[in-house]
Amino acid sequence: MPSLTLGLEAMGLTKRIIPCLDVDRGRVRKGRHFLDLRDAGDPVVLASRYRDEGADELVFLDITASVEQRQTMRAWVEQVARALDIPFTVGGGIRTLEEARVILYSGADKISVNTAALERPALIRELSETFGRQCIVVAIDARRRAEGERLWFEVYSHGGRRPTGRDAIAWAQEAEALGAGEILLTSIDRDGTEAGYDLDLTRAVVERVRIPVIASGGCGHPAHILDVLTVGGADAALAASVFHYDKYPIPHVKRFLRERGVEVRL
């Protein structure tokens, strides 16, 4: 059964399944609405397990609050890079070229920026020109807004806590023009709910940029991943708890997708 969005032009390229690990002071935690946190282990152990199960990439978000404690970031990034032979992205609090360089030179394949890019969009261009577009991910956290008949999506900064007044689609386009290689798009409304991705948000951004979009927020079942990759048109699906607690192991999810016509690496 061919899916809706896998045209000939995408020939050969698989949809990616990306577990996300929140790291606090070197330990993996799972965010729920970005707030109450539960411990789930050692980054190297979890990362290797996901690699063995068939994860296509990994995303680590460092959620360590204090700047001093963030010095530990380099150490765990190096440990992960030493063990892992699939690509991984590191994000969370990266604000300068120098911070990005430390993370990339510690072995991360890509870095993601969020609040710092909203505060100073030229950062995206500087990162892209310095390290190459392919390793710059711009993370966008957005929430639904209804004004009269108009539905739009507002970008939030500071871990999803602060409204910016910016339109998510316009910001995604600007990020692409500045040199972003990928967009990591999180629905704040859905994050932690396990009620499914925000397909409207995903589709709206996918249709207006020419770079890959990783959908995030709301995954609770393999059918949600199927929906966001087909109806939503996302290039990759990111999820956390659905993989962390062995609810739906990655091979199970990938077989589910392949049986329904989505090309995945199995």
Partner: peptide, 12 residues
Amino acid sequence: DSVKVPHIGWNA
């Protein structure tokens, strides 16, 4: 130009 560039991902 018919595909997204850079090409990032797994291919056979």
